[in-house]
Each structure stands twice: as structure tokens, then as C-alpha cells.
Computed example of a mutant assay.
Amino acid sequence: MNITQSMIDALPVLLTGARITVLYAVGAMLLGLPLAFLVALGRSAPWPPVRWLLDLYVSFIRGTPLLVQIFVLYYGLPGLGVTLDPVTSGVAALSLNVAAYMSVTIRASLDAVGRGQREAARSLGLSSSQTMRFVVLPQALRIGLPSLMNSLIGLIKDTSLVSVITVTELLRSAQLVIARTFEPFGPYLAAALIYWLISSLLGLVQSRLERRLHRPGPA
């Protein structure tokens, strides 16, 4: 069987796996983004124990491989009496991982909004929540959008690691095809091209969002 034909034959299975990959990434992003925002705010909280715990969480996640984190949740927790299925373990590991990285981006973006703008908003009668919503967050979003979108693109690729706990995402789908056909190059190449296509599409979305956020309003 030639390489092109093996790629074509593998496509139906790979596209099903790609759908699972996207669902995993989107699910982890939806769970991780609110957690990242809370962590970013908590690391600036006036309570030292909270700051220390959150700093430890971010340091641990950023200092250990994602694969090890997946193993800890899926294989390690049963030793403590907590058993998670592969789907829950995968989503939890991805969410906790991306939240730690995004919290750093969010914190830096919030800090980049000048204190003078906050004080000006308060002098105009805006409450703290209104200042955050109408003044700080829109500017922080423009600042942090590239890094946040890069996190999502990275998350698409990181989902391949959940294949080690038998989640049938894109990479695992390619492995199943290879186990049946004994033709590795075509399915792996097709999977790589699908990852590249998804990442490229997200890159286009990122560029469009950046242009829209930086577009000047009406005079």
C-alpha cells in the first residue's frame, strides 16, 4: 500500500479522533480559563497562606511534565482511594496544567494596565467591579490575547499525551489504525497534518481577533 492511500484510508478514523482532540482542548480551556483567572487574582491577594499555596501550585505544574501529571491523576490517585476514569483524568490534568500557565499571562496582563487608569476610573465614580469590567479587563484582554491563544494551540498538541491512558483522541486513533494495517508512516503523517491544520486555523482566528481588538472605534 502506498503512503497516500494509507493516509486516505486512515482519514475516517483520524477525523473522529480529531473531534475528540478538539473537544478535549475546548473543555480543558473552558475549565482552565476561569481557574487561571482566580489563581491570578489569588496570587495578588493580601493573605500570605493563599499566595503561598497558589505559588506552589503554579511552580509545581510548570516544573513537572504534563505526562507525569496525567500519570499522577490516573495511576496515582487510586492509591489514595480516588479513582478517575480516563476521560476525567485527561480533562482534569489538561485543565490544571493550562490554568497554571495562563494564570501567569493573566496576572501579567492585569498588572500591565496602569494604576493611573484604575484611579481615574474610581474618581469617576466606578466601583471596583465596574473598574475591573469596563477598564482593566478590556485592556488586559488585548495585551494577553496572543499568549492565551498560544496556550490553546499548545493545548491541542498536548492532548496527544492522554493517549497513554487509552483515550482515543487523534494520536491514539492513528495508533489503532497502525495496529490493524501495520503501515505506520501514512497514519502518523496524516495525524501530524491534522494537528498542523487545526493549529493553523486557530492561528488565523487569533490574527483576526487581534485585528478586531486593536481596531480603533468610531470617531
Rank of each mutant, 00 (worst) to 15 (best):
V167W: 00
A40M: 15
W47T: 12
I194A: 03
M149E: 03
V72R: 01
L15P: 15
A10T: 04
A99W: 06
P48W: 15
W47Y: 10
Y101K: 06
L33E: 07
A100Q: 03
I165V: 11
G114Y: 04
A112L: 11
G27M: 04
G76N: 09
V104R: 06
R107W: 03
D85P: 01
L84C: 02
S123R: 07
T131A: 13
G63I: 15
M29E: 03
V135W: 00
L155S: 08
L161K: 13
L213C: 10
A120M: 12
R51Y: 12
S59M: 15
L145S: 13
G154Q: 10
L209C: 06
P48E: 13
D55E: 11
L73N: 01
L204C: 08
G63L: 15
R115N: 03
P49W: 02
I20V: 12
S173F: 03
T4V: 03
V72E: 07
P86E: 09
L202G: 02
L38P: 14
A179L: 00
F60T: 06
R107A: 09
A99F: 13
L11R: 04
S6R: 05
P138K: 04
S127M: 07
L96N: 03
S109Q: 09
V162C: 14
V164K: 06
V164H: 07
I106V: 09
L77Y: 08
W196S: 15
I156A: 08
I8S: 13
L11D: 13
S151H: 10
G125I: 01
L201V: 08
I165L: 12
L176F: 10
S129H: 12
A112N: 01
R62C: 15
L155H: 05
L110H: 02
P49H: 04
V39H: 05
M1I: 07
G154M: 03
S173G: 05
P216C: 07
R142I: 11
A99N: 10
L201E: 01
I165Y: 04
L54K: 14
Y188D: 02
P78V: 06
V50E: 14
L126W: 02
T88S: 10
L161G: 09
L38W: 09
L73M: 12
A140N: 14
Y57V: 10
E169F: 00
F185G: 05
R215S: 05
M149P: 08
M1D: 09
L14A: 05
Q5V: 08
L209T: 09
T181V: 10
L23E: 13
G27V: 01
L124T: 13
L141A: 14
Q5N: 04
P146G: 05
P187T: 00
A121M: 01
G217I: 00
S173P: 04
L31C: 06
K157C: 07
S147N: 13
P65F: 02
L84R: 13
L15G: 08
P78C: 13
M132N: 02
S200L: 14
S44T: 15
D158S: 14
Q175K: 05
D85C: 10
F134C: 09
S89K: 12
G32L: 15
P46M: 11
V82A: 12
V68I: 11
N150E: 01
M102A: 06
L15I: 14
R212C: 01
L41V: 11
L141G: 08
S151L: 00
L77V: 10
V26M: 14
A108D: 02
S89T: 03
R122Y: 06
S44N: 15
L170P: 01
G125E: 00
Q69M: 15
T166Q: 13
V72K: 03
